[in-house]
């Protein structure tokens, strides 16, 4: 049987498109079932930041985030995708409020999951107070949605990574998929170096940045459940896998997370470097982990078997 052409072409494009390099809109277009995406408050509504003009800075019509609904393998999903190239994907007042509203709807409905395609440096400096509070509201809304039964999945593989308050929101999600370029942290390398000196963290040492904050380390640590290769199709498959795996949220999950994190601190708290942690996890030749291809790495990560499932 020959599949209809329109079904083949998007999957082929998704397979050959780098998630990292694609725009937020392209990621959504190729992640969801073809033609299923509908945006809420699209760019034609021109709901721009009311604060950037104070700093004489250009606005973007969608304020750097695209939110809406679509279908994933036929099932309805809510989606939000940050554009990491506009102001580093940072959270401002409007940007954050769009995600908050989406999550509040997910809480009321309860059965429709939310996919968040993170790509952010954290709080937008020029509207720092509004951005910080937006992140607090989003964290609250993520938890309320999860308590109401909605799954909230984070996909992390954008060029701005997932930093600052974005890292905290990611920590509130039901599950995460991450690719190698997807970095997750609170303080960025430059911030640590500026505040604590180059001896604490050399932000120009890119290998150090990747192995401390990058996707492979986060997967091996159990901070992310699935490692995706850097294509939109891989993230689509990861999202589907996570949606099928995630269970309901409750107090047991929080207790399990407390135990999981306390155990991590006990086991690896004395490690100086990611390579020491990987070695302690039983990986031979841990120093070669950064070079491993996605396939080999996924096999390794699955063998080590550390996940945060039901413990977050």
């Amino acid at each position: 049987m020959i599949a209809p052409l329109k079904d083949i072409i998007p999957a082929e494009r998704a397979r050959s498109t780098s998630f990292n390099e694609a725009s937020a809109r392209t990621r959504l277009e190729l992640l969801l079932d073809a033609g299923s995406f509908v945006e809420f408050i699209g760019p034609e509504q021109r709901e721009v930041s009311p604060h950037l003009r104070i700093f004489d800075l250009p606005e973007q019509f969608d304020d750097g985030i695209v939110v809406g609904h679509g279908r994933l393998d036929g099932s309805p999903v809510f989606v939000a995708a940050q554009e990491g190239r506009f102001m580093g994907g940072a959270f401002g007042e409007v940007h954050g409020a769009k995600l908050t509203g989406l999550l509040r709807a997910a809480r009321e409905i309860g059965s429709i999951p939310v996919l968040i395609l993170f790509d952010t440096g954290g709080v937008r400096l020029q509207e720092a107070n509004a951005g910080e509070l937006a992140i607090a509201e989003i964290m609250r809304a993520v938890m309320e949605a999860r308590i109401a039964g909605a799954k909230v999945i984070g996909l992390i593989g954008g060029r701005s990574g997932c930093y600052g308050g974005g890292g905290l929101i990611a920590g509130c999600c039901s599950a995460l998929a991450v690719s190698e370029p997807g970095r997750i942290a609170v303080s960025g390398p430059e911030v640590i170096e500026t505040n604590r000196g180059v001896e604490e963290f050399d932000s120009r040492d890119r290998a150090l940045v990747w192995r401390t904050m990058g996707g492979k380390h986060r997967r091996l640590l159990g901070a992310a459940d699935v490692f995706a290769d850097d294509t939109v199709q891989d993230f689509r498959e990861a999202a589907l896998e996570l949606l099928s795996l995630v269970g309901p949220f409750g107090l047991d999950g929080l207790r399990a997370e407390q135990a999981r994190l306390a155990d991590r601190l006990r086991s690896f708290g004395g490690c100086e470097d990611a390579v020491d942690i990987w070695t302690a996890e039983g990986i031979a030749h841990a120093e070669r982990v950064p070079e491993l291809s996605a396939d080999l790495f996924i096999a390794l990560a699955n063998r080590i078997g550390r996940t945060s499932r039901d413990a977050r």
């Binding site: 890292g167 609170v186 904050m213 640590l221 994190l261």
Partner: peptide, 12 residues
């Protein structure tokens, strides 16, 4: 702190 996943501890 970042190596061990500060974002998870703060979120938790």
């Amino acid at each position: 702190d970042e190596l061990l996943g500060l974002n998870e501890f703060l979120a938790h």
